[in-house]
Nucleic acid binder design. Structure first.
Lengths: 244, 244
DNA sequence: ACTGTCCATAGTGTTGAACAATTTTTATAT
DNA sequence: ATATAAAAATTGTTCAACACTATGGACAGT
């Protein structure tokens, strides 16, 4: 019964002198580790929708495809798991997270909980304000160019700037995670123009109100915005999942 | 199914000293991976103060000490880094995070930002309320027994229960991280009786108010509590760092 | 003495192979 | 068909090796 026998190797007779193809020479900027580089790449693939939620990421396949060892890849998986983009199942491997309705609901609950007070108590001259303004303009530029992925990024950046008004590094990094999950949801939905188009101008109004010193009014606009967006996204989500 | 011969390691009799018997023990379902087990162990060491902030964790030394491979240890480090307990420095390794004054200030800013609204909008019959009550009683028990580490845990549990009133899994898990960092701070300070003693009774008052349906009053109590606690901790921190 | 270069050392970053443990698939027997 | 056992794939973990980076000391020039 002991049967179980390895058949795998045999080819391993090769000499260990294998060329290692050292990391590409990107001699610029702060030394990013290989794992971080790969993580960024996979993250981008997930966000852009090339890696669809629910799909299984095989360690062997991916390590060959990305030219990194399994060990390094596992470090990458750990990172992305903590970020919420991937999900581990014991002895089964990692999968791209699949946001559910309750995920969306929770995300928007958090957003209202954090963004609205942050905005309401903001000082009109806070450096975050100019970042909000910049994000709105960036969104418009992307809309012109029909770069909807860019519009999504700018929208996220806008709201991240709102959170920065609270002057709390921890809150900002928490929000960054939430935003990542939200991007996952975006990727799941189709018709990005329909998805983002209407909200750019509302962002514009919000930052305008804030710059005029009417923080509370801006906060109320934001709350209405978030409630609408939530219903909107939930609707689109239901439509997509119904199709399958 | 799969009734296989349970022949485990016997060939690797290299250094069986610590003998940890990986998966044998809890044959239940949660199937904790080795890395998680080790992470829990280090986490506990950091919280209890046996691993002092700022100290360097050598991969080689620790992997020998804990009887795990460097690769596994690195996975552990990644987890604890995301939790905020450890800090990476490129090519220099991991260190136990050293909370600074601004860390404490940020933690308490976040706590007020999250806990107070959560409490103010809470329903008096929410399941979280009974958890708050239970935590207060646990804290009192530990105080009797002079188990100050336990008092700290109960205090954290009390406030985690407050956050659960908001019914948001993401918020709760975020708060869990913050609480971990706070424990790090606690470990840095001495005289835990002086540290926790006065706050147990304030927790009691808060939950009592809430149970009576006066959520807003409870929230105001909480805010005052948090402001006091922040000053208190900052003072103790300054005293400790001044000594060095 | 003072300072800057060079080198040995030690520690992290990454790899590839190996094996154990578990899940999934296939083949076989009832 | 259906249950069950063997085979194949995959993940979990370890090990040994080497490249790369940081640190500290020896050594030469001023």
């Amino acid at each position: 019964m002991a049967a179980r026998k390895p058949q795998m190797d045999e080819a391993k007779a090769s000499i260990p002198a294998a060329g290692k193809a050292p990391s590409v020479s990107r001699a610029s900027e702060p030394v990013q580790t290989l794992a971080e580089t790969v993580a960024a790449r996979i993250r981008e693939q997930v966000i852009s929708g090339r890696l669809t939620p629910g799909s299984h990421l095989s360690e062997q396949t991916l390590s060959e495809e990305l030219q990194v060892s399994r060990n390094t890849l596992r470090e990458v998986f750990r990172m992305l798991t903590k970020e919420g983009l991937l999900r581990y199942e014991a002895n089964r491997g990692v999968f791209v997270s699949t946001p559910s309705m309750s995920t969306i609901i929770d995300i928007y609950r958090v957003r209202r909980f954090i963004e609205c007070p942050a905005l309401a108590h903001a000082h009109p001259r806070h450096p975050g304000v100019s970042r909000m303004r910049a994000a709105v303009e960036e969104a418009r530029r992307c809309r012109e160019a029909k770069d909807w992925l860019g519009v999504g990024s700018a929208d996220i950046a806008f709201h991240a700037a709102i959170v920065e008004l609270a002057d709390s590094p921890r809150m900002s990094s928490f929000y960054a995670q939430i935003a990542l999950e939200l991007r996952l949801v975006f990727g799941l939905l189709q018709d990005p123009e329909f998805l983002h188009g209407p909200f750019i101008d509302q962002n514009f109004e919000i930052v305008t109100e804030l710059e005029a010193g009417r923080a509370v009014a801006a906060s109320e606009l934001l709350e209405a915005y978030l409630l609408r967006a939530e219903r909107f996204i939930l609707g689109a989500y239901a439509r997509v999942t119904a199709e399958t």
